[in-house]
Design a protein around this nucleic acid. Structure first.
Length: 378
DNA sequence: TAAATTTGACCTAT
DNA sequence: ATAGGTCAAATTTA
């Protein structure tokens, strides 16, 4: 529902925003070319380009905020346009702005942190789904090429109520009916409390919730570095470099990043129930990648870590694994092992994760710092 | 009756 | 053109 006045006002701003974004895109592309053409040139070049890009994106963010303020409700958080009828949309009545809005929305979503987990249910015969204690709402199902089972699409139950953009995709393994590959995207910003008891939904058929908390990521990889918050990073002017791990064949870097600052994320977006129904599984069946995760995840958890429950397991995978699972390398971007911010205060678990950032622009020579370059947004 | 799921159409990216 | 992802009307469930 777009309110007339607001929408109009937003219209021109939107044009400006789009223009700025286009600029940013172009600048990023140029930066990428600079890199490609002259990989040995001095850092100043890149710094300058990065600064420009930063500036542009900062302006874009400002405009976006202005739009948001002018037309509240019309564009909620990550995505929300629940009521724009699509079927009836006069096929041609779409304005280019609408189209672009939609596109940018897609990209925004694409940029959300993404990680994968495997769940095992005790009984393959049941069409059970793993339950991690979070409340999800199924919004779609799709047959996937090459997969025996359809993939289920879920989003946080509180998506509209609390503008929580967390989503997940659940895919039953072709080979092991007890196993489910669950891909999470976006962190929970809602205030729902993760049910600690959640038993792997051995739960009969439907009902049951779903699962998956983005708990502690598998800090595999040996690398450990200080990972200041993104804002800090920006403040440092990209000085501090995150170690990026590239996947064979690729040379652009993806960097896990936190999308919009936890809107109102009070503290840790995720909580770890003292008794999670899952326990990390190192036995990721087929992938050698499992070899990467020697350090028992448990050692990273400050507190009681997941406990095994009726044979279920829960484990995180980093993109390399995903790669092995047949994902498109290009779609994976790279993995960035993020370090732990020692700051006890605002300890954000999400920074522990291996975010699988997916770059929209493969030319981007540096991490997609989605954050506005100017101070802490908000 | 409200909330959740199903399902086919629609949309975007590749 | 195709595959994957999302929407929303219809339907089912609580």
């Amino acid at each position: 529902m777009q309110d007339g006045a607001g929408a109009e006002a937003a219209g021109s701003s939107m044009q400006a925003l789009l223009a700025l974004l286009a600029d940013g895109e172009e600048q990023a592309r140029q930066l990428g070319e600079m890199m490609a053409d002259d990989p040995w040139s001095r850092a100043e070049h890149y710094r300058g380009a990065a600064r420009r890009l930063q500036c542009t994106l900062g302006k874009a963010a400002a405009v976006a905020r202005a739009i948001e303020a002018a037309a509240p409700g019309s564009s909620r958080g990550t995505d929300d346009r629940s009521d724009s009828p699509r079927s009836a949309d006069e096929s041609s009545g779409r304005t280019t702005t609408e189209v672009q809005e939609r596109q940018s929305m897609f990209k925004r979503r694409k940029g959300l942190p993404r990680w994968t987990a495997k769940f095992r249910v005790p009984d393959a015969s049941l069409d059970a789904t793993p339950d991690d204690g979070f409340s999800w709402r199924k919004y779609g199902q799709k047959d996937i090429l090459g997969a025996k089972f359809p993939r289920g699409y879920y989003r946080c139950t509180y998506r509209t109520a609390q503008a929580c953009g967390a989503t997940k995709q659940v895919q039953r393994s072709d080979t092991d009916l007890c196993v489910f590959d669950v891909t999470y995207q976006g962190e929970h910003t809602c205030h729902q409390k993760q049910r600690a008891s959640a038993t792997v939904a051995a739960a009969p058929a439907h009902g049951a919730g779903s699962q998956s908390p983005p708990p502690p990521p598998p800090l595999e990889q040996q690398q450990q570095q200080q990972d200041p918050s993104m804002m800090q990073l920006l403040r440092l002017g990209f000085k501090r470099v995150l170690k990026v791990e590239t996947t064979p064949g690729l040379h652009d870097h993806g960097i896990g990043h936190r999308d919009s600052g936890p809107a109102s994320a009070p503290a840790a977006p995720f909580s770890f129930p003292s008794a999670s129904p899952f326990h990390l599984a190192g036995e990721a069946t087929d992938n050698p990648a499992a070899a990467f995760s020697p350090p028992p995840a448990s050692s990273y958890f400050p507190a009681p870590h997941p406990v095994a429950v009726d044979g279920s397991f829960y484990d995180y995978e980093a993109s390399p694994v995903a790669l092995m699972r047949g994902a498109e390398p290009s779609e994976l971007g790279e993995v960035v092992t993020r370090a732990i911010t020692t700051g006890p205060a605002a300890f954000d678990y999400s920074s522990l994760f291996h975010h699988q950032a997916e770059l929209d622009d493969p030319h981007l020579p540096f991490p997609p710092f989605g954050g506005p370059p100017h101070g802490p947004y908000q």
